[in-house]
Design a protein around this nucleic acid. Structure first.
Ligand SMILES: NC(=O)c1ccc[n+]([C@@H]2O[C@H](COP(=O)([O-])OP(=O)(O)OC[C@H]3O[C@@H](n4cnc5c(N)ncnc54)[C@H](O)[C@@H]3O)[C@@H](O)[C@H]2O)c1
Ligand SMILES: NC(=O)c1ccc[n+]([C@@H]2O[C@H](COP(=O)([O-])OP(=O)(O)OC[C@H]3O[C@@H](n4cnc5c(N)ncnc54)[C@H](O)[C@@H]3O)[C@@H](O)[C@H]2O)c1
Lengths: 235, 235
DNA sequence: CCGCGCTAGTGCACTTGTTCACAAAGTATT
DNA sequence: AATACTTTGTGAACAAGTGCACTAGCGCGG
């Protein structure tokens, strides 16, 4: 393994694509393919080749001209860069519809993440087993986080509770949060926050759907490619 | 209602934020507040005021200087722009863990979207009721889509089936797809595609988590704000 | 009717991200 | 060893997005 080339700032857009390359490379490795060109990788990841090369160049110069990239090696480089060489324990807050689906979800743990605690405010849920793990009261959040070394929290509570839950997670020592509730929450400096918002996604689709239907007549072309851009903070 | 000001191209980044304003305005309207300033709206939506003003200016000049924006009016403008004045029927493909959570999800229908069909390839699931709707075989997809006027499809199948399901959705006449499966799928021109990818989100969090932990020492600052950017196509 | 205070709308500079196109650097072939 | 071919790595042009800072316009109080 090469040393991580520090002092290099990896652009956010690149960081967001590394997981795609990572997945594509894993699939390639499973097919016992040893090298990939930027073009092949681009196809698998759904981007263009120039972008792949530029992105990978931020990690260092690990390709071989005339040949391509060594799959296993590149996987190791990206794993390291993404921090996937260790396992990240995760706590899920709010074990309702969505929380249960997440807790039962196998692919969650598949790549370096492990559901290590489930908490809910509803006493009726306490002790219930979901995906082999018992649901604990929200009051024990801090203890669970501390004892199990959890750094990442997933919020699957109703929107109204999201900010409160966020504060509790932060107080408990969590520094990365993935929020599924349709609410804007704020976090103190040093905490990363990302969100997944179903309604927003559907509404964006609706916009382009409506555009195709009713705005066609104005003779304006529709864009070939859209970039989804929701905000996340490390404040 | 003002006429939609056609011939105006709304930037993608703005389209992606309109749903946030829409939600914030709804919450404001529920509190019987009649006007909001760009600053207030910015707070509620988690962006900055200049951005709000610029975004809204793409829709037309609907604010009043010295006062702000009329909440109900702006809601109407944004609804119209996002195509939310009509109800969009939606089909969910793959009624497993996630598909069931989605089907049971109330907030789905809350804002103009309605789960109108559930299909799955597994015969054992056929006829089963989820969220008050029966699961139908994937073979009847085309009929269901045609009969119920469905334009939007949600993919909640395993990744391996995602491309196949996408093709079937497109053949059935769907032109907007939201994909939850961790797979890159391609769609023909004229079809919008967006994706929600849990693993990617977690890995991005992991990157910044690891960065805080181990890269601090190189004396590079961490960014205050990150922009999540996953790709979607209307090809 | 005037002037003050407030806030929308926007030009402009800046930052970030994307893409092209080509030199550099490797492999394969003869 | 020389040449042909392939593919990386990157400078530079371009495109998109952001945010400041200022102007224009409205409401209100006197
Ligand atoms: N269900 C879905 O498919 C889906 C999809 C996208 C987004 N969402 C969002 O995810 C969130 C959860 O959705 P759901 O369908 O699972 O809702 P749900 O009502 O089924 O579950 C919410 C759970 O959170 C718990 N809870 C409430 N307040 C809490 C608190 N303060 N602390 C801890 N736990 C608390 C409740 O006891 C309940 O178990 C909602 O914000 C929803 O909008 C859901
Ligand atoms: N469960 C989660 O919380 C979660 C979270 C994020 C992403 N995902 C992704 O969502 C997808 C579904 O996850 P899940 O946990 O619900 O899986 P699951 O195995 O519980 O459900 C998958 C369903 O799809 C059906 N299916 C399989 N092939 C099909 C086909 N060709 N046509 C129609 N239906 C088909 C299966 O019969 C099954 O009912 C997966 O790709 C997963 O990676 C799941």
């Amino acid at each position: 393994m090469p040393d991580r080339l520090d002092g290099r700032r990896i652009p956010e857009a690149t960081v967001a694509r590394l997981p795609l390359y990572y997945r594509a490379l894993n699939e390639t490795a499973e097919r016992d393919i040893e090298t990939v060109s930027s073009e092949q990788l681009a196809d698998l990841a759904g981007v263009n080749a120039a972008k792949v090369r530029k992105d990978l160049s931020y990690l260092g110069s690990y390709g071989t001209r005339g040949v391509g990239y060594a799959v296993e090696f590149l996987l190791a480089v990206i794993s390291r860069e993404l921090g996937l060489t260790q396992d990240w324990p995760v706590v899920i807050v709010g074990i309702g519809n969505l929380g249960q689906a997440l807790a039962n979800y196998g692919g969650f743990g598949a790549r370096g993440f492990q559901v290590s605690a489930l908490v809910d405010a509803d006493p009726a849920k306490h002790g219930e087993k979901v995906g082999g793990l018992a649901v604990d009261p929200i009051e024990s959040l801090a203890d669970l986080v501390a004892m199990r070394g959890i750094r990442i929290g997933v919020i699957a509570t109703p929107a109204a509770a999201a900010q409160d839950v966020t504060d509790q997670l932060v107080d408990a020592g969590i520094s990365s949060i993935l929020n599924f509730a349709p609410a804007i929450v704020s976090v103190p400096e040093g905490v990363s926050l990302r969100k997944v918002d179903l309604a927003t996604e559907l509404q964006i689709l609706s916009y382009y759907q409506a555009e195709r239907k009713s705005r066609r007549r104005v003779g304006k072309f529709t864009p070939d490619v859209q970039l989804q851009a929701t905000t996340a903070k490390t404040s």
